[in-house]
Each structure stands twice: as structure tokens, then as C-alpha cells.
Design a protein around this nucleic acid. Sequence first.
DNA 1: ATTATGATGTACT
DNA 2: GTACATCATAATG
Length: 190
Amino acid sequence: MMTRINHFPDLSTSEIAIFLLGKVLCLKTADFILTGMITETEAYTEDDPASHTFGGRQTLRNQPMFGTVGTIYIYLIYGMHRCLNIATGQKGEGSAVLIRALKPLQGQAHMQYNRGVKVTAKGLTDGPGKLVQALGIPMALNGASIFNPNIPLWLEDHNYSCIHQCTTRIGIRRGQDRLWRFVVLGDVQK
DNA sequence: ATTATGATGTACT
DNA sequence: GTACATCATAATG
């Protein structure tokens, strides 16, 4: 059984971050479908000093984070890498889940081509910037809904069940103490 | 194996 | 000007 996800359960941002672990992110191009299982996520909310929306700050860039649940937020970080987030909460609430890592499932060779570097299967998509590049997620999807059936990016539930761990976050300076990073442990069961 | 450095857009001081 | 939700490459142990 494999179903396309067209809504999220009514949960908090960190609970949705956990919900997304083991789900499958899919991108369709003219010739390929590229898929990968989500293995690492992170929650970002308005009370998180590391969030673009800390304290309710609104800018032109972070508007999608204030959109309805499922709004896609893609932004450029360090001038060169793009990160994929999915908004959570009500419209007007600046919260989202960052997709930090995938395990490649379908179209690995094409992901390799998109990345343009010689790396192992793990290295293909084991970072937020890497997975966006590997799938070739277009910036044009910024602000669209992940539940919109007319866009080439969507989520599927393949009924993978996985054990997860909550950890402190990495790669940031502020708000490191919060246990809002979620990773899949070990192998995944069908 | 770990550490150092450069690339460089957007938000903010 | 500085900081940043990063990554590849080079240098070092």
C-alpha cells in the first residue's frame, strides 16, 4: 500500500517533523521520477531563536512560512545552497519543518548527475542543501502547496515505520539546545 | 580521521 | 559591515 499524502494530521510543528520521518519525497521531471525517504527533519517556530520567523518577524523572503499547512518554503542559505521547508500551523503562524536528509530510493543515477560530484549513495542526499540539489527542486515551487496535485513535488506514505531519535541541532549558532532535530535510527521496516 | 577555508544572497546592525 | 537552518575541497594527523 502506497498513498499520496494530501494533508497533515492536526499536530504541532515538532510532531509533524516526526510524522514526516519515513515518508517519501517525490519529484517528477520530464523524464524521471526521483524519490527518497525522509530520514532527518527539524522544527522551526516563532519562539525559536534560530528560525527566520523568531518573534513573529515577517520579511518578503519568509512569507511562505506564514502560509497554510503544506506551503513550500525554499530559501537560499550561505549564498549557494537551497533548503526545503514545509509550513505548519495556521495561516499567519510562522512555523515550518526543514527537510534535512533523505535516503535515495528511485533515480539515484540522476541524483548523482544533478549533484555533479562523485559521492556515495549516502552522500547524495544527506544534507539539506544536498537533497534539494540532488532532486533538482526548482525555486519556482516556493510558496506553492506540497498538497497541490498540479506541481511536480509531492509526499507519499509507503508505510515505512522507523525508530526515531530527538537530538540537539547542528550547524546553527542559536537555539542549539532545543531537541527539535529528528533523525531515523538504523534500518527501516516495511 | 578531523580541521580549515572559500563560495556568496538575503536579512539585519 | 556581520551572521547565517551549508557544502566541497584541501590540508593535516
